[in-house]
Amino acid sequence: MASKKNQAISVTQLQKMTIDELPPVTLVLGQEQALLDSAKAYFEQLLSSEEREMNYGRYDLSEDNISAALDDAASVPFFGDWRLVVLTQPTFLTAETRKNKIEHEFDALIDYLAHPQPTTKLVFWANYEKLDERKKITKAIEHHALIVDASELKGYRLTSMLNQEATLRHVTIDPRALELLLHRVDEHYTLAVAKLKQLALYVGVGKQISVDDVDQAVEQVIEDDVFQLVAETLGHVQQNALERYQHLLRNGNEPIQLLALITAQVRLLLQVKILRHAGYAQGDIASQLKVHPYRVKLAMQQEQKFRLIELKQMFQELVALDFKIKTGRADKAQALELLIIKFSAKR
């Protein structure tokens, strides 16, 4: 049996296919919820409500034996042209140890894959990060099925899909606004789509989503507040720095957590300044430090305002303070506030 894996298509490409164009077997693979929701909506609209009553089957393979699903798939449709059979929880395709293990008849499934019922659309719903491609059954399905990629989106695919989503909402988004949005949602596509829908309603049809729109409508993450706190501290804007620190404490953030985040931010500024002076570009710095390019971009803009000796001194005192707090030699909340006061004082 040939075991060459089919090339995957995107959910967007799937949505453009009619039921006639859809192959007899489809494998939906991945864990990006927004893409899974779109794929689910696509399959749900393939049959009319009347056709679904007679020609739709859904089987949970953690509970149902696949033989029942194959019997259904092998049946001709009643009062319609097509039958749709969806198989969920095919954990046997993964390396995961199965609970309540059911003995599936894989030989019968492999036979069906080689000779599928032409009027049935069989869908494997594999909402997993990856499959165990060492298994014979996995190889067979990947060879015979149309593979739909619903994996987590990254990089260009992520920004491209969000720009497409904006177009569907009849808005555009400034590249800098998109960058900020992705930063605020930690590059989670599903969350970014939800926020983009809100932003589209916020700005209105035909408008462009700006950086200010994202800043106002999408919650700021704690790292952004810490970023501003460090900037205000090293920029000697003492009142703002102290107010921001108290605000973070009131929001339930522990001094130890804030100390760790401040230390990480100052370390990043220090590393970026050193690497930039050594001739590294933004992308190279991000790759070298394994830090998101947006954080590096902000750090490159910020580090130029501070002297190397200031960053080194603050970093050393933050590390020393961490040791003092952990060994009970300093009060965590007061000691960090005193350090902020020291470095934010006018000089």
Rank of each mutant, 00 (worst) to 15 (best):
D37V: 08
T263C: 04
E51C: 09
D224H: 11
P118I: 09
E179M: 11
V148Y: 04
L181W: 03
L339Y: 07
K135S: 13
Q117M: 06
I256S: 03
R184Q: 12
T263M: 04
E50C: 02
A231C: 00
H247P: 05
G279Q: 00
H143K: 07
L308E: 12
K5P: 14
L29W: 11
M1P: 08
L201W: 06
I341Y: 07
L84M: 01
R250A: 02
V230T: 01
K332T: 10
L269S: 03
L146F: 10
Q45Y: 02
L131P: 03
E179W: 03
L61G: 11
K297S: 12
L153C: 13
K290R: 14
I256M: 03
Y156F: 15
D64F: 07
A140H: 10
A192K: 14
I209A: 09
K121C: 01
A8Y: 04
Y245M: 03
N251F: 03
V230P: 04
M54A: 15
A299Y: 02
F78L: 10
K121G: 01
L321G: 08
Q265I: 05
A177V: 01
R276H: 06
Y156C: 12
L339M: 08
F124P: 01
L261G: 01
S3Q: 15
R157W: 14
D71V: 09
A264S: 15
K197T: 07
A281M: 10
I309N: 14
A335V: 05
K312H: 15
R267T: 04
V148G: 09
L234W: 12
R98S: 09
Y294E: 04
V296I: 15
V211R: 14
L122T: 00
L113E: 06
S75A: 13
Y156P: 05
A335F: 08
A241W: 11
F124L: 08
R52V: 06
L321I: 07
A34Y: 14
E105I: 04
L339K: 00
D284W: 09
A200D: 08
I141P: 08
R98M: 08
L248G: 06
D149I: 10
L199G: 06
N65M: 09
P116D: 03
N65E: 09
L70M: 00
